[in-house]
Design a protein around this nucleic acid. Structure first.
Lengths: 207, 207
DNA sequence: TATTGTTTTAAACGCTTGTTTAAAATTGTT
DNA sequence: AACAATTTTAAACAAGCGTTTAAAACAATA
């Protein structure tokens, strides 16, 4: 696995950094070129336009966060173990890439925003059988009756919102970045136990 | 209560609509002026600059959402009832003003973003005694031991994220705006029961 | 009505934006 | 070494940005 140091790759990498940090409207082509140490014209030489480059970055950001979850659900574990593991890994992922959720949500809300094809990505998650497994457990009375939308919302809300609202929370509680990171560690346990306890009410093995 | 139809008020109102929908960087002074049916120059005539006008709008958006919660906590109810009531009212508020949370979070994350004074607002919430009440209940063993940060995060995550991620969720699940609104209704019950059950584990009166 | 002060307008300001151009530099090939 | 193709550059383009200006329209007062 050699690192691609070509001009094209450098620009794309710089674009990812800048777009994730500032959004499509929040940055300029020249800013991206500078971040890559390149001339402005090269951005369009390799990617035709700012929008074109953005689409590539957006798509790969979505894939990053979706595909990071796929292999988790493929493990041989009980459903509860998978859920615990997923939340843990999601928090780890978001610690490394905190800008991604906000970035995706923002650009989707934008007028003329980025509407890409999610079907195949969502399909890949579905193909792990995680959703079917939930249906089975629900039918067997071992899991609470809940829609797929609600279940996904419960998990994503409690994983992503704490990262998305970092600046706001720091401001409200007057705490530093490190202090908030510390809070997130204990918050993760609360989230995990709360969700597991709610989704599997009769299960007694909750720690 | 007479409605202010002055030019100044019209511009401010239009600015609120446009800023909330598109953000500071996502719109232009001319766009705001047009939305108000006014000349561009009037924006700066009354508000000195686009940034100045934005600060007013941002401040009032924050106040809208914070102050909408204050009176809820002033009611004479048990802590659990207050929490249920708060979540209910928060969902109602967000149904009316779905852009506000995303708007605030976004602008706070922006470079040179809007850093306003939250102390007095957070203070107003604190003065309802809700936080002290939680401390008391925790000390008495009637409520789970949890930090203030985590408690607020739990509630805000589960109230705000479903609204913030509307477009994303619609895209993932391929559902219409109305269908998603319907999902939110049942989701609110899940959220309420889950949070109450988690925060007050020994309480038996959960429906 | 004449003279204020205020409000609104069209036009322009300098600057930055995304994008294009045409020449220069570099690389690859024979 | 000579030519061709590719890559990079500096400069320019028109369009749009926030903001300012100076004159016009309006309102109020005397």
């Amino acid at each position: 696995m050699k690192k691609d140091t070509s001009t094209e790759a450098k620009i794309k990498e710089a674009a990812k950094t800048v777009f994730l940090a500032k959004g499509f409207e929040g940055c300029t082509s020249r800013e991206i070129a500078n971040a890559a140490g390149m001339n402005v014209a090269l951005v369009n030489y390799y990617f035709r336009s700012k929008s074109q480059l953005f689409k590539l970055v957006f798509q790969s950001a979505v894939e990053d966060i979706v595909l990071s979850t796929v292999h988790i659900f493929k493990t041989e574990q009980t459903l509860i173990e998978k859920m615990r593991y997923f939340i843990e890994k999601e928090y780890e992922f978001l610690a490394k890439h905190p800008e991604i959720p906000n970035f995706i949500i923002n650009e989707m809300n934008r007028e003329d925003g980025c509407f890409i094809e999610y079907n195949h990505l969502f399909q890949q998650v579905a193909e792990t059988g995680i959703f079917n497994e939930c249906m089975t457990e629900q039918a067997a009375g071992r899991m609470r009756e809940i829609s797929l939308v609600s279940m996904i919302l419960l998990i994503m809300s409690n994983c992503q919102y704490p990262t998305i609202s970092k600046k706001l929370m720091q401001s409200i509680h007057q705490i530093s970045e490190d202090e908030y990171a510390g809070q997130l560690i204990s918050h993760r346990s609360h989230v995990t136990e709360m969700i597991i306890a709610y989704l599997f009410p009769k299960n007694l093995s909750n720690t």
